[in-house]
Amino acid sequence: MLLIHCPHCREDREEEEFSYNGEAHIVRPLDPESLSDEAWGDYLFFRKNPRGVHREMWYHAVGCRRYFYAARNTLSYEILHTYCVGEKPQIDAANEGAGA
């Protein structure tokens, strides 16, 4: 069971209150009509799957019902930090230890 710090509620809450929304910071294509099949496939299906620090989106489903980001290590399951949408992460991925 993960204990997750919701940056909106500013509280550590149990994993069951949250749902997972996968890789964070995926930018929606601005001009979808002009995308190649490769670029579409990439946008829809190809996700980072690091064995190490992963930037991901979580949803506080039965709490404040707001989205936020987390930097989490997928091997140790340690959550390095969580931050609100629109906020700059405090540390950048390169300084977060274990490889990408």
Partner: peptide, 13 residues
């Protein structure tokens, strides 16, 4: 489990 992980263990719930 709901999230990505390489830890060969999962959540109790």
């Amino acid at each position: 489990d709901g999230y990505n992980g390489y830890g060969q263990r999962g959540s109790f719930h």
